[in-house]
Design a protein around this nucleic acid. Structure first.
Lengths: 261, 261
DNA sequence: TCTGATTTGTTCGTATGTATG
DNA sequence: ACATACATACGAACAAATCAG
């Protein structure tokens, strides 16, 4: 009898159910790090393999996420970032019953480089304002957004943003009552150490990089933005509903917007 | 006289222009590896720093891409994967004047797991067919696509696909003349070693992971697919055009499709 | 899983030529 | 002529990532 087992309850399942209870009860909060396997093994008086089996089971059920060399973490709910024509960061987050907020990282005045100039349809090296901010959903980092505006067309928009903390409100001061996302391109990149700190993400998980241009009612570019979203918490959703039939304008969720900001 | 320099032409610029000529002339082909910095330095009789400066300059202009520990590579043209309601892999690639092709990696019969069952709106563990294929654009890997079909509704679709090498044609045999992408979710993941080999990509560059469901004219799910695209060559584009005005159906490029295949 | 070889990335220090006052 | 600052180029060493065995 190498191992006395009480009845039919497998040892790893008992470990699992304790951890699961801690997670579901909120004792272990989303994003929190779980103790190293060796520590858990010692605490429960079982072998590390037994703990591992329990952890793997919890991963399969999506309650834990483990990262090589970093540890296991309690899963956080995924926020879906809907890419549409008129969505705004705030409304996306609010739709999911979360509180949106922002931290202003910096406002820089600089000449437009090639890509910014092309997106805003202005001349290269023309003055632009670069606004960098960190978006939060329920206090958790959801993305770093960098926004570029034509400083000639919107003089002082940096200060407007600093006061309002909102692209929409800052633009309103210049008579822009509405704007739309023309198109977006999506790629993925690895985070810099700074990204990791700001987004509270491990260095081995990629970021979604979304680039896009917002235009006014006359299809003239107003804003070019680049945002980096952590794949640990954010997911992009593109839902294209039927466009031919009934209502075509208004509420049709085909909108693409102002990601991150 | 530590260094005789002929007139005002900077040394690193001379190195740069030689490399640039080789690339533009086609002597160095897209995707090809450039010799290690040390080798170039020896060949040109300059310091490694001088070569590095030339390489960095070429990176900035998008002619080279370098990866730590692997080397520098001649840039390949980016293929834009347009996410829309009715786009097909073939047409996306053809639009960009490239030749699409596919390699069948495997056809597996298995019971539906939770996510597949949910997407296809069938019961868990109901029989499904999993088709895995590698998509190519002009012979270069552009993505790994995994497609799931309800085997009860489409008995023998695996064989149909094997013969036709096309999801569209295979579905046509079952009376499906047209289908649409209902929605897609996008995240990013790191490649497995197998992904790296198949997609000819380094292990430190992320993959775009696109999940989606295709439905028939009655909005009933037909196919669930997951594809992994190399960010070195592929980029996702979501272009939302105005939907209210004039033509709303037909040609409106809002279509989302059957990525990868 | 680990090791060693290869290659890029980074940071020191040194020397030399150019521009400025 | 001299001092200073700056940019270019070289040299050496080490860190970090990749890759083959």
């Amino acid at each position: 009898m190498h191992q006395s087992r009480s009845r039919d309850v497998l040892l790893w399942k008992r470990v699992r159910s304790i951890l699961e209870r801690d997670i579901r009860s909120g004792l272990r909060q989303p994003g929190e790090r779980v103790e190293p396997e060796a520590v858990l093994a010692a605490r429960f008086g079982v072998n590390r393999h037994t703990v591992r089996r329990a952890l793997i089971s919890l991963q399969e059920d999506g309650l834990l996420v483990t990262e090589q060399g970093r540890g296991s973490f309690v899963s956080e709910p995924m926020v879906e970032y809907r890419l549409g024509r008129k969505t705004r960061f705030g409304s996306i987050v609010e739709e999911q019953a979360l509180k949106p907020s922002r931290i202003l990282l910096g406002i820089t005045h600089k000449p437009a480089d090639t890509s910014v100039a092309a997106a805003l349809e202005i001349e290269e090296r023309a003055p632009v304002v670069e606004i960098e901010s960190l978006g939060l959903a329920n206090g958790r980092p959801s993305g770093i957004g960098i926004h570029y505006f034509d400083e000639t067309r919107f003089p002082g928009i940096g200060e407007s943003y600093r006061e309002t903390r909102s692209v929409t409100l800052a633009l309103a001061r210049f008579g822009i009552t509405d704007y739309f996302r023309r198109e977006s391109t999506v790629t993925a990149v690895m985070p810099t150490p700074r990204d990791c700190k700001l987004l509270d993400q491990g260095p081995s998980r990629p970021l979604l990089l979304v680039e896009g241009t917002n235009v006014d009612a006359d299809d003239v570019p107003i804003e070019y933005s680049v945002s980096r979203m952590p794949t640990s918490r954010m997911r992009l959703r593109v839902s294209l509903e039927r466009i031919s039939d009934h209502e075509s304008g208004a509420l049709n969720s085909i909108s693409l917007d102002g990601h991150l900001m």
